[in-house]
Every structure is written in structure tokens, then in C-alpha cells.
Amino acid sequence: MKSALVASIAFAAAVKAAVQGFDISHYQPNVNFAAAYNAGARFVIIKATEGTSYIDPSFSSHYTGATNAGLIRGGYHFAHPGQSTGKAQADYFIAHGGGWSADGRTLPGMLDLEAESAGQCWGLSASAMVAWIKDFSDRYHARLGVYPMLYTNPSWWTACTGNSGAFVNTNPLVLARYSSTVGTIPGGWPYQTIWQNSDSYAYGGDSEIFNGSLEGLKRLARG
């Protein structure tokens, strides 16, 4: 009975484990990565590209700074669905910072799916949006051997994909919800891999919480 109780407590502790991280872009040109690491952050996701013509001007310096500070790091791509193919945007992302290798320090690339000036769903139907995301995701996987993380929020995912569950078994979810709780998770994912819980982090950008232990985060980085 005692051993079962110890195992139960250990399991509960593992479930509640979390790792602080953050995400940034050129809107945060000066980031003290060493201070963020010393304060407990262990990963950062850095904007690399948009569409097929934009490279974030701070990506290179941010990536170098994060690497030097010992942070696990990766790039993200702001999607322009329908303006070019998912395949073309995946190739552009990979060519300009979105690559991945199983070194334990590089996160799979993240596809940022949200509304912009082109409209809530970029002019695409739910089925067309799902097909576009799959085109991007499959191309990324074919080239690098790992699926990209998908960043979204419940309202966008429901409106623009019809709350599709097509990516549950392949793509880790990065859930944006600025609240004290995760809330309802869209798309049939049983849990979020990363939770963007605030649009303000002490060392710049948005706060992100990895849903697991540091070793779990390293496993994600190893693919």
C-alpha cells in the first residue's frame, strides 16, 4: 500500500510539472537571455518568418543570444494561409531559421495560426484551411522528420478549421489563452504541449509554459 501511495504521489507531481518559457520577435529587440535563464526560463520560441517574403530582422541575433544563454530554442512562422501554398511557406520557413535537428536544444518549428489584416480565416473555408495546414505540416515533416507545433487559440481554431481534430496524433499544440487556467482545449487534443498564458513576460514577449518536466521538454526537442 505504501509503495502504491508513493507511486501515486510521484505521478501527481509529474503531471503538475511545468517549465517556464517565452516567445519573442523584433518587437523585443533587446532581450536579456541570461537573466531570463537565471529566473527559471528554459526555452524560447523566436519569430523567424511570415509568408514567403518576410524574415524577422531580429531572428539571427535572438537565436544566437538564446543559444549562448543555454536556452532550448526554436523558430516560428506566422502563417499567411491561401496567399501561397503551405508547402511553399514551409520551405521558406526552413530556409530562414525554421530548421530542426535532434540535438536536444532545438524545438520543432512552430506554425502560428491566427487572424491578421487578411481577415479572420484568410478567405479560406474550414476544409481549405485544414488542407493548407496539412500541406505545410506534411512538407515540414517530409523534409525534417518531425511535425511542426501548431499555435492557435480556441476561437480561431473553431471558426477557421471547424474545430478539426485532424492534427491530434501528429502535431503538438501550443495553446494561446491569457488566463489563470488552460480552459477548454480545441481540436480534440487531449492536452496542450505549451500554454501561452500571458502576453507579458518579465524578460520580453509572451509567457509560455511547457506542460511537463525539463526532461520532457528535452524529449520534445529531440523529436
Rank of each mutant, 00 (worst) to 15 (best):
V19A: 03
Y151D: 07
K2A: 08
F22Q: 01
S198K: 07
H62I: 02
A102I: 12
F210V: 08
S3L: 01
G75H: 09
T67W: 09
S164M: 13
F93D: 13
I194E: 05
G109A: 08
K218C: 00
V6K: 15
A90M: 11
G187F: 05
G74A: 04
K2P: 00
S137E: 14
A69T: 08
V15Y: 11
G216C: 10
S137Y: 00
T158W: 04
M129S: 01
Y151Q: 07
C121W: 07
N197G: 05
S58G: 10
I9A: 12
I55P: 04
D138L: 11
R219W: 01
G86N: 06
W189M: 02
G82R: 01
T158L: 02
I55D: 13
M110A: 15
Y201R: 04
V15T: 09
A126R: 09
S3E: 14
R139K: 15
A10I: 03
G99W: 06
P154K: 10
M1T: 13
N38H: 06
A159T: 14
Y37L: 03
H26T: 13
A48K: 01
Y191P: 03
A48D: 09
L217I: 02
V174T: 06
N153I: 04
L214P: 02
G86S: 12
P81W: 07
G109E: 02
A35M: 06
Y140H: 08
T85S: 15
R139E: 15
W157Y: 06
L214F: 13
A115V: 06
D199I: 00
S207M: 12
T158N: 11
G123K: 00
C121F: 06
R73S: 12
A90V: 13
V19F: 03
V44A: 01
G223L: 02
L220Y: 11
A115T: 14
I55S: 14
G216H: 04
S84K: 00
H141D: 11
S180C: 04
H62C: 05
M129L: 04
G162M: 07
I9Q: 07
L144W: 00
K16A: 15
I46H: 08
I46A: 03
P108R: 01
L5Q: 12
T181G: 03
S125H: 00
I46M: 05
N163T: 09
T64F: 05
L5Y: 04
S53T: 15
R139Q: 15
P29E: 07
Y178G: 10
T181F: 08
T184E: 14
P148Q: 02
T184F: 08
G65T: 08
Q192A: 14
F78W: 12
E114M: 03
S60D: 15
G82P: 04
T184M: 09
R219G: 00
P154V: 12
L5S: 08
S84T: 15
S60R: 13
V19K: 03
Y63R: 10
T67N: 14
N68K: 08
P81C: 05
F22R: 00
L113K: 02
N171F: 12
S198T: 05
S200H: 10
I185F: 01
L173C: 09
N68D: 14
F43G: 07
L5C: 01
L5K: 06
Y151H: 03
I55C: 11
Y147K: 10
W100I: 13
Y191K: 14
I185Y: 07
L150H: 09
L71F: 06
A12D: 11
E114R: 04
F136V: 12
H77V: 09
D138R: 08
G21E: 10
G204H: 01
L124I: 05
